[in-house]
Each structure stands twice: as structure tokens, then as C-alpha cells.
Design a protein around this nucleic acid. Structure first.
Lengths: 184, 184
DNA sequence: TCAGGCATGTAACAGGTTACATGATTTG
DNA sequence: CAAATCATGTAACCTGTTACATGCCTGA
């Protein structure tokens, strides 16, 4: 039972969705804490359905073919809750930028700085997205009658924001260290 | 050619090491940006040697059996430098805590708070380790004649510190949101 | 009509993890 | 003398990715 199952269950517990919508959601919201591709999500949904954790109903789509809208079953919810209560594992990171930074002594300073600029732009963009999403959440929380006022999505968004801010801080520190001292 | 090859090359470019020492290093320093186990490091070293990127010499050990000390070859260094200069990929994260946080609406607040306390303790510990390592680096940089004064290790340490600080910030925010309002 | 987004899936391959397997040396 | 740490490796399994495969609908 891989963790991806629980990620998918978690995604569906917020709101029933199609595999395609789940993929989109993982790209946007989920990407700051879990990476997954549509080609692993579809088989996971099939497996979850086989074991009785989700069911699907067919629904027409505005654009494109019919969708399978997946919903968490009571059994699936029970399994999800049990997992949520189990001890957390440490986060696992694979950050190429850091491996490259580790080797910045081996390349010209200019190139290292250029690379960091690119990285900074990427994370500034991400920060922007998360902040916009949080603003949207706030709006929905005020207008709607509480069903959009879940803690979960807010917590992960806050995390994303903190992470991106941290990365930007690091970029500045790195630039400071790389730029030759006394170079204005 | 997996990225792990370059992680290993990067680790060896800082200092020639045995597979065991590399594993230790990945656990400590490397764990904040790349997760890998000894059972993937040994085969990677074998592969790197087969393609001429590293060589090894045998060395006796104080404790335990003989070690294979691996060194990066000129060809390996060239390959590493080329990779370092190539565009960076976005970091890939798999953070269980965030998936669970996403589901905190489903469990009692007390349990969520307990889980966050555990997480906070973990990251506080990590922060401590990284700060101690940075202090050690500073010492070495002052005393030794520059060979310990590489930018790379300092950059990744700074990143680790920023990341852990960010995580601690998030834990506080999460506690604030979870704790029932008006509960002193 | 054609490019792009919607929508779902499969197959082959690459990668990493768990567990297995071995054995020396030191510390308590 | 037992446990922990040092030290290196292998094999089976699981998982996930890349690429392949299909087809509808909409807007330019």
C-alpha cells in the first residue's frame, strides 16, 4: 500500500473528482508536498476501487469525453483516518538545485549566479500562486457557509508559502556569498 | 543516468570517501536535499567506476573490514561539471506530514496537535544539527588554509537551516489555527 | 481545419527500498 | 561475551516515469 493511495484519498476527501481533475490538483496545490503524474494516478484509482475505498460515477463533460467522478467510500474514509493518525514519516526531498549548489566551486561564478536567478524566479512565481490561492480561500471562507472553510487546504497552502519564502531567502544568501566581495 | 550518480560524484568531489562514509554523509548533510540508502549507493559506485568516472583504492580501517576509498577521475569531474551547468529541475518533495495536515479536519484536534508537536521537535532537532555544522564550518574556515572553505557545503547547510526554520514557522501557524479560538 | 486542452488509459523500463547475507572490531 | 558500529554487497520486489495510444470538443 503506497502512500500515493492516501494522497489520492485525501484529495478525494476534500471533494469528489475525476482522475484528470486530481492530476490537475496535484500539479497545482499538491505539488509543493507530493509529486505524482497522471500515469500513476489512474492505476491508483483503479486499485482503490478494487479494494473498496472509492467508487465512481460517470459524468458528462463540457469539453472532451465522459469523466469518472470518484468518491471516497465509508471504508475508504476509515482507512484514511487511520493512516492520518499514524506516526508521520520525515519528508523526503530530491532537490537538484542543492546538489548543483554543492558544486558551485567547480564552475564560473557568473554561471552559478545565473542559475540562482532562474531558481529565484521559479520560487517567486510559486510564492505568488500560493498567496493568490490563499486569498481566494479567504474570500470563499467569508462568503460560503463553512463548507469551504476546511483547515486542511489552508494548512498546506501556508506551508507552501513558508517554503517558497525560505527558498527565496536562500537565493539571496547564496547570491551574497557568490558575488565577489567588494563588488557593488 | 540517474541523478543519484551526480549526487555521489558531488559527494566525492568534496572529499574522497568510502561507500559507507558516503552513506553516512547522505544521512547527515545530504538528507535535507537528497535521500538515498546504502543499497543504492554501492551499485551506483560500481556503475560510476565501470564508466570511468571514479576509481577506488583499498585502505585499512580502524574498525571493521577494509574500505574502498573512491576518488573522482578527470573524466568524472568533466561529466559532473557539465551536469552542474545544465538547467536545474524543480525540487521534488514527498511530505507525509502535509498529506496528513490536509486531512486534519477528519481527526480530533488533540491528535492533530500532538502530531504537530512531534513534527516540531523533529525539525527543531534538525535545525540544531545544521546550525552546529555551520558553526563547525566557520571554525574550520578560519583555522585551515582555505581547503575547507568551499562554498558548496556552506550553501547546502544554509538551505537546510532556512528550510527547518520555515517548517518551525509553519508548525506555529498550524498550532494557532488548530487550537480552538479563545483557548489560552 | 488544426492546435490545444480535456480525458483516460497501458506497457516497458528505470529506479529505489526492504530484506537478506556476511564478517571484523571495539566497547561495555 | 554480547551488542553496536564499521563495512560491503545482492536479490526480489514495488513503485513510478516515459512514452505510447486513443479520441472528443472548442476556439482560432
Amino acid at each position: 500500500m503506497s502512500d500515493l493511495k492516501y494522497v489520492v484519498l485525501a484529495g478525494l476527501s476534500i471533494e469528489p473528482r475525476s482522475g484528470y481533475a486530481l492530476t490537475r490538483w496535484m500539479e497545482r496545490a499538491g505539488h509543493n508536498f507530493w509529486a505524482a503524474d497522471h500515469s500513476s494516478i489512474y492505476p491508483t484509482l483503479t486499485a482503490l476501487e478494487r479494494e473498496g475505498s472509492v467508487t465512481h460515477t460517470l459524468a458528462p463533460s463540457q469539453r472532451g469525453p465522459q469523466q469518472k467522478i470518484y468518491t471516497v467510500t465509508p471504508a475508504g474514509l476509515t482507512a484514511l483516518i487511520a493512516w492520518v493518525q499514524s506516526p508521520v514519516a520525515a519528508p523526503e526531498v530530491h532537490d537538484e538545485q542543492m546538489v548543483k549548489a554543492l558544486c558551485y566551486d567547480l564552475i564560473p561564478v557568473e554561471q552559478a549566479l545565473t542559475q540562482i536567478h532562474t531558481t529565484r524566479a521559479y520560487h517567486a512565481q510559486k510564492l505568488h500562486e500560493y498567496q493568490a490561492a490563499l486569498a481566494l480561500l479567504d474570500e470563499l471562507a467569508q462568503s460560503a457557509s463553512g463548507q469551504y472553510n476546511r483547515l486542511g487546504p489552508r494548512l498546506t497552502l501556508l506551508h507552501g508559502i513558508v517554503v517558497e519564502q525560505g527558498y527565496l531567502t536562500w537565493c539571496e544568501q547564496a547570491e551574497g556569498l557568490l558575488r565577489p566581495p567588494g563588488n557593488s
